[in-house]
Design a protein around this nucleic acid. Structure first.
Length: 441
DNA sequence: ATCGGCTCGCGCAA
DNA sequence: TGCGCGAAGCCGAT
């Protein structure tokens, strides 16, 4: 937070990472402040074109969700405005225009979001507040440094979890109506959801929005949580929750999900524990990594042992070298890998276990770790619905650079970075069945 | 099927 | 300063 001059207009919540009305602490906090100060409350969202190479499928998923969120906000007397410009340009004008009282943001550790907020803080007269409603324990409270691995963050989370994993109040109809809302609507309505006629956008493979996110979560808890432990690493069994797109876009609250899972009494205890480990420790570790490691997508972010080891193996002979395009179209010599790539492109997601194998092969089949990082991130961000997420950057850094992992027996190209291959997959599941389940193009 | 070795450094106890 | 311990796998021996 910083001091500033509060105007007489409404409190503004700039929604960005957490695209939901319910279970949103940033919105709740904004409403509380608005009520205390006797002000109206509005929500804005800045729509950037070509955001971190997002594809039409991402925009489609996001805009579908935002349309629903807009409706539920309006039911609660909270106007929603979609601003189609760079936030560092449009927000200062917008806030002056409406004589805003406060600006509330949600938290995001990615560089572009942090830069936006830094630039805004310099330009704005009104105070800015940032609320972490993506993590259960705000990143800066869970730990004040870049954690070395899950085992160093886990005890810190465990110490705080009871304090933060609490029930979340409901949003209530905002009692103070801001008079100028209609005037503003006309001015900023430009092309509001005209993208809804998204004929050029690709067919939806996954339904979006808060409502469906809640249903998918409930269905997972009811039907598949109990077998999570046994099925999670088998891509043929639909053993994972499939919730990461909803979590990524903030259409589902991680805290709500954790509350639901925690309160389940009858399920398999190990499954419950492992799912909560993924949902809380692993996910919040990824945010910790991106927040405290500004070069989260670079070789320099890797631990020293991995950098040294990868450096020592730079000149190792690569039996296969593929270009970005060859990888992108799934044209390697390994059918399992090609199936993974096709799966990613066609279905906008890749199974959690296969992602590790997928990224490790890119390290093996490209000229350098830097190129492997670039290609993996590029493919993941472009095709995966949960791309451009700390989970993705941390997962790829784990695969290629040993981030949050330990050193293993030294071998060519990988050095001491953990090796994975198709043989390991064959030991774990029926790779043939998986390959056949992904139709060739 | 199951087991052990591979390897490093954090964080705590002393 | 020393040491216990973790960490989403591989591989070869049994």
């Amino acid at each position: 937070m910083q001091s500033g001059n509060c105007g007489d207009g409404p409190v503004v919540y700039w929604m960005s990472r957490d695209q939901r009305t319910n279970d949103n602490w940033a919105l709740l906090w904004a409403q509380q402040e608005a009520i205390i100060r006797g002000k109206g409350l509005i929500v804005i969202f800045c729509l950037i074109s070509d955001y971190l190479k997002a594809s039409s499928a991402h925009y489609s998923f996001m805009l579908d969700g935002l349309e629903q969120t807009k409706i539920s906000l309006e039911k609660n007397n909270i106007s929603f405005y979609l601003l189609k410009e760079d936030p560092t340009v449009i927000i200062p004008h917008f806030l002056i225009d409406i004589d805003a009282h406060l600006l509330v943001c949600d938290f995001d550790p990615l560089r572009i979001k942090q830069q936006w907020k830094e630039n805004l803080a310099k330009k704005l007269a009104v105070p800015i507040f940032e609320v972490d409603t993506h993590n259960i324990i705000p990143v800066w409270i869970a730990s004040d440094k870049k954690e070395y691995a899950a085992y160093t963050l886990r005890p810190k989370i465990n110490r705080l979890i009871d304090e933060f994993l609490t029930e979340i109040p409901s949003i209530t109809p905002h009692p103070i109506i801001w008079e100028s809302a209609d005037r503003l609507f006309n001015r900023y309505h430009t092309a509001l959801f005209d993208l809804a006629n998204r004929s050029s956008f690709s067919r939806k493979s996954i339904e979006a929005g808060e409502k469906i996110a809640t249903e998918v979560a409930q269905n997972f808890i009811d039907k598949r949580l109990s077998s999570y432990s046994n099925h999670r690493n088998n891509p043929c069994l639909n053993g994972q929750s499939g919730l990461s797109p909803y979590l990524h876009f903030g259409q589902l609250s991680a805290q709500r999900l954790a509350l639901q899972v925690t309160s389940i009494k009858t399920t398999n205890a190990q499954s419950k524990e492992e799912f909560l480990e993924e949902l809380i420790v692993r996910k919040e570790l990824a945010d910790n990594y991106c927040y405290y490691e500004k070069q989260y997508d670079q070789f320099e972010a890797f631990p020293n042992w991995a950098q040294q080891s990868l450096n020592a193996h730079r000149k190792d002979k690569r039996d296969y070298i593929y270009s970005f395009e060859q990888l992108e179209e799934g044209g390697t010599h390994e059918e399992l890998w090609n199936a993974c790539q096709r799966d990613l492109v066609k279905n906008s997601k890749l199974h959690g276990f296969l992602r590790m194998y997928w990224a490790k092969k890119i390290l093996e089949w490209t000229p350098s770790p830097e190129i492997a990082l670039e290609y993996s991130i590029s493919l993941n961000d472009r095709y995966s619905l949960d791309g451009r997420d700390p989970n993705g950057y941390a997962g790829i850094a784990w695969s290629i650079g040993g981030v949050h992992d330990r050193a293993w027996k030294e071998r060519p190209i990988f050095g001491k970075v953990r090796y994975m291959n198709e043989a390991g997959c064959r030991r774990k599941f029926k790779t043939k069945q998986y390959i056949e389940s992904i139709q060739p193009r």
